[in-house]
Amino acid sequence: MKFSDYMKDNQITLLVCFAGGLFFSVLLLAFGISLSEMALLWVCFAIIVFFTMFAYFRKQQKRIQYLLETMETLDKKYLIAEIADRPETELEKIYFRLLKTALKSMTDEVTEIRRLNMEYKDFIEQWIHEIKVPITGVQLLCENNKTEIMRKIIAQTELMEQSIEKVLFYARLGSVEKDYLIKEISLKQCVLEVLSRNKQFLIHNRVCVHTDSISDLVYSDSKWLGFIINQIIFNSIKYCSDKPPVIHLKSKDMGDYVTLSITDNGIGIKQSEVNRVFDKGFVGSNGRMRKKSTGIGLYLCDQLCLKLGIGIDIESEIGCYTTVLLHFPKSNHLNV
């Protein structure tokens, strides 16, 4: 706060002082005081008013500076009313009381919203586990009565499972660190498990998957990594071209990290949209054209990769291919 701003805020006080000075000047002149003496009194009066105002300004400036510095050091800014020194004036006491009341109301509201979100999350997770039971039952019935129609039904149930799994992982996105176990895993084994889980869907869509070039080991969580790979493969199938879908999965040791590339021969992505595919809700021209995109799948992949310490990039050429690259960092302290 500048001194000029402080003076503007106290214009009424200055006007009262000036009016009082004029009043007493008239009285003193009436009692016969000389003009030189009057001028001296006015100079003394102006000096007293100025230094008094300046002293209050410096005190207020120090107080504001202290509050701002205290605020900067706090991770939780809303605790400023609890951490700051006791109010020094009656006006500060009123302001602090209002601030504490507003913060308590905000805290209560946030707590209630968190409680409702937790209840909703618990309900979603419970519903997902319950809905998996009849889906599994349908799959078992179809497995025991293998016909062409039953295979198509299994393919659709696998698609349903993939959508349900997406909802589950989205619900758990905020607490990934509580539900993962980092250990050495085989990339090929993880990929094969994903393909096995969706074999009927892949067969139904006549997808050709090449996994011969995967051989590296990485440190990650197999469940969360499986979801990421599964989502990328499903996207490759969803945005396939008129040609039979072909997906190539390759791993390569790059020295400081291992890269898993997943390449398809689909319709590709426009260069202007490549940098936005990981944005939440972004469907792009392909999604609007096919009307099947939600803009959540790759967003989930990006967020999970961030929490797992995996780098993710995407390369594409419209009408030719799309390649998703997963970069798994190496760390010497993991080799214990």
Rank of each mutant, 00 (worst) to 15 (best):
residue 189 Q to H: 05
residue 125 E to V: 13
residue 34 S to C: 12
residue 48 I to E: 03
residue 293 S to F: 13
residue 25 S to L: 13
residue 247 I to D: 00
residue 296 I to H: 04
residue 20 G to I: 14
residue 332 N to Q: 08
residue 255 G to C: 05
residue 151 R to Y: 12
residue 195 L to M: 11
residue 157 T to D: 01
residue 168 L to E: 14
residue 154 I to D: 11
residue 198 N to T: 09
residue 279 D to P: 03
residue 10 N to L: 05
residue 283 V to E: 09
residue 99 L to I: 11
residue 162 Q to V: 00
residue 200 Q to D: 13
residue 276 R to Y: 08
residue 208 C to L: 11
residue 317 E to S: 09
residue 18 F to M: 12
residue 320 C to N: 10
residue 200 Q to V: 03
residue 129 H to F: 07
residue 66 Y to Q: 11
residue 138 V to P: 02
residue 109 E to H: 12
residue 333 H to W: 12
residue 325 L to N: 05
residue 274 V to G: 00
residue 13 T to Y: 09
residue 273 E to V: 07
residue 133 V to M: 06
residue 143 E to P: 00
residue 7 M to E: 10
residue 243 K to I: 10
residue 316 S to K: 01
residue 131 I to N: 03
residue 230 N to P: 01
residue 86 R to H: 06
residue 159 L to D: 09
residue 66 Y to F: 08
residue 144 N to A: 15
residue 301 C to W: 02
residue 244 P to N: 06
residue 336 V to R: 12
residue 184 E to H: 03
residue 216 D to S: 10
residue 258 V to I: 15
residue 293 S to Y: 12
residue 112 E to F: 04
residue 22 L to I: 15
residue 126 Q to D: 10
residue 236 S to Q: 03
residue 7 M to Q: 12
residue 245 P to D: 02
residue 291 K to P: 00
residue 252 K to C: 11
residue 107 T to R: 14
residue 54 F to E: 07
residue 158 E to D: 08
residue 89 T to S: 15
residue 49 V to E: 10
residue 163 S to H: 09
residue 312 I to R: 05
residue 313 D to L: 08
residue 189 Q to G: 03
residue 58 R to G: 00
residue 170 Y to S: 10
residue 260 L to K: 07
residue 102 A to E: 09
residue 203 I to H: 00
residue 262 I to V: 13
residue 196 S to H: 03
residue 122 D to I: 06
residue 319 G to L: 06
residue 146 K to F: 04
residue 140 L to T: 10
residue 331 S to C: 13
residue 107 T to P: 00
residue 336 V to G: 13
residue 130 E to A: 04
residue 156 Q to A: 06
residue 259 T to V: 12
residue 27 L to A: 14
residue 128 I to L: 07
residue 96 F to Y: 14
residue 255 G to E: 03
residue 293 S to P: 06
residue 233 I to F: 04
residue 28 L to T: 05
residue 230 N to G: 11
residue 153 I to E: 05
residue 104 K to W: 13
residue 227 F to S: 04
residue 210 H to W: 02
residue 269 I to A: 10
residue 118 M to E: 15
residue 324 V to P: 02
residue 51 F to Y: 09
residue 199 K to T: 08
residue 285 S to P: 00
residue 28 L to S: 12
residue 21 G to L: 04
residue 304 L to T: 04
residue 325 L to D: 00
residue 147 T to S: 15
residue 17 C to R: 02
residue 277 V to D: 03
residue 67 L to W: 08
residue 246 V to P: 06
residue 335 N to F: 06
residue 158 E to A: 08
residue 82 E to G: 08
residue 159 L to Q: 06
residue 72 E to V: 03
residue 48 I to L: 14
residue 307 K to Q: 14
residue 46 A to F: 15
residue 321 Y to W: 04
residue 29 L to E: 10
residue 116 L to E: 09
residue 316 S to F: 00
residue 35 L to M: 15
residue 307 K to P: 05
residue 246 V to A: 14
residue 242 D to T: 06
residue 89 T to E: 10
residue 134 P to Y: 03
residue 75 D to N: 11
residue 47 I to L: 14
residue 158 E to I: 07
residue 284 G to F: 10
residue 190 C to H: 03
residue 299 Y to H: 13
residue 200 Q to G: 02
residue 139 Q to Y: 00
residue 15 L to V: 15
residue 168 L to N: 11
residue 313 D to G: 05
residue 105 S to H: 10
residue 92 E to Y: 05
residue 165 E to W: 00
residue 308 L to A: 09
residue 260 L to C: 14
residue 43 V to Y: 09
residue 178 K to P: 01
